[in-house]
C-alpha cells in the first residue's frame, strides 16, 4: 500500500485559529511563510508557555530574524521585499509573545503580516 506524506511540517503547537469577518485572501501563495504560535502539544518536553514554531522546530524570538532571511532567500530576487508572514496563532495566546514576534519581524524588515483566521458565521 502506498502512503503519502502531504503535510510539509508537523505542527507542534496547539492551533485553534480565532474567527473574524474581514478576511482577505492572498494572491500569491509562494510569498507566504508560516509561523505558528501556541501552547506546545508535548507539554512534558516543551512546557506550557506559548512557543513559536517556524518550519519544523520551535524557535526562540531572537532566531526569527535568521529564519525570515532564510525564507526570503528561497524567493526569486524581485519578490524578496514582498514576503508575507502568515501568523497562525492559537486563541489562547496572549499579546505578549505576539508583540515579541512582531518586533523581530520588524527587525527583519518583513512587515507584511497576515493574521490567519477563519470566517465567522454571522448569527442574526
Amino acid at each position: 500500500m502506498v502512503t503519502t506524506v502531504l503535510r510539509e511540517q508537523d505542527v507542534l503547537v496547539d492551533q485553534k485559529i480565532p474567527q473574524s469577518t474581514q478576511l482577505q485572501k492572498l494572491q500569491n501563495k509562494t510569498l507566504i511563510s508560516y509561523i505558528f504560535i501556541g501552547k506546545p502539544k508535548n507539554t512534558s518536553l516543551y512546557g506550557t508557555e506559548p512557543r513559536v514554531q517556524a518550519n519544523d522546530v520551535l524557535i526562540s524570538s531572537p532566531e526569527i530574524v535568521q529564519w525570515v532571511n532564510q525564507e526570503r532567500d528561497k524567493l526569486p530576487e524581485q519578490d524578496r521585499t514582498s514576503i508575507t508572514i502568515s501568523m497562525k496563532v492559537d486563541k489562547e495566546v496572549k499579546m505578549g509573545p505576539i508583540s515579541d514576534v512582531q518586533t523581530e519581524l520588524r527587525n527583519a524588515d518583513a512587515r507584511k503580516v497576515l493574521y490567519a483566521s477563519t470566517k465567522k458565521t454571522e448569527i442574526d
Binding site: 485559529i17 473574524s20 474581514q22 478576511l23 482577505q24 485572501k25 492572498l26 501563495k29 507566504i32 502568515s86 501568523m87 512582531q102 519581524l105 520588524r106 527587525n107 524588515d109 512587515r111 507584511k112 503580516v113 497576515l114 493574521y115 490567519a116 483566521s117 477563519t118 470566517k119
Partner: peptide, 12 residues
Amino acid sequence: SDKGILNVLPPK
C-alpha cells in the same frame, strides 16, 4: 486556508 486579516507593521 490562506485567509486572514492583513496588517503591515511599522518600519523598524
